[in-house]
Amino acid sequence: MNLKERVKDILGDDLLVMAEFRGDLCIEVPSKRLTQVLARLKEEGGFDFLSDIIGIDNIDLYVKKAKKGKKEADEKEDVVDIGPPPPRFEVIYLLLSLSTNERLQVKVSVPEDNLELPSITSIWRAANWPEREVYDMFGIRFKGHPNLRRLLMWDEFQDHPLRKDYPLEGKGEERHLDYDVA
C-alpha cells in the first residue's frame, strides 16, 4: 500500500484535501481534529519525527487574486466571482517517518478571528520551540503549550513580524537598555 492510500485509510473523514506536488504529499485536515489526526499519524502511520511547524499568511494571495479578478471584470465588462477570501493563516506540520523515509505535510487553516490551535507538545516534545516561533511570528496561540513565550523577538515586542501587513523595516521598535552594569 503506498503512502496516499495509507494516509486515506488512517484518516478517513478527517482528510479534507490531498495534493501532491513533485513527490511531496500535502493533506489538509480540520483544525478541531488536529490533535487526534497527528496522534494517529504518529501511532498508525509511522510518522515518528516532527521536522518543523510553519505558519503562512495568505493575505497577499487574496489581494493579488482580487486585483486580477477586477482586471478581468473590467476587460469583460462583467462581474467576475473570485470566491470568498480564504482563512488568513495556515499552519503546516512537516512530518517524517524515520523508518520509511517518507514525508508528509499536514495543513490546517486558522481564520483571523480565531487565532488558536491545540498544542501538540504532548505528541511530539519537539513541537515546543516551533510552536513558540509560529506564535512569535504570526500571533497564533497554541492552547496547552507549556511555555508560550516569544522565541526570536524580545519579550516586550508587540507585533508579529512575519504577517504580511507588518512593514519590513519594522515600526521603530527598540529594546530598552535597562540593565545593571555590574
Binding site: L152, W154, E173, E174, R175, L177, Y179, V181
Partner: peptide
C-alpha cells in the same frame, strides 16, 4: 540584532 543590543552595550560597559 535589536535583541542583542543590550548585551553588546553591557559587555562594552564591563
Amino acid at each position: 540584532t535589536k535583541k542583542m543590543v543590550p548585551v553588546l552595550k553591557r559587555i562594552y560597559d564591563q
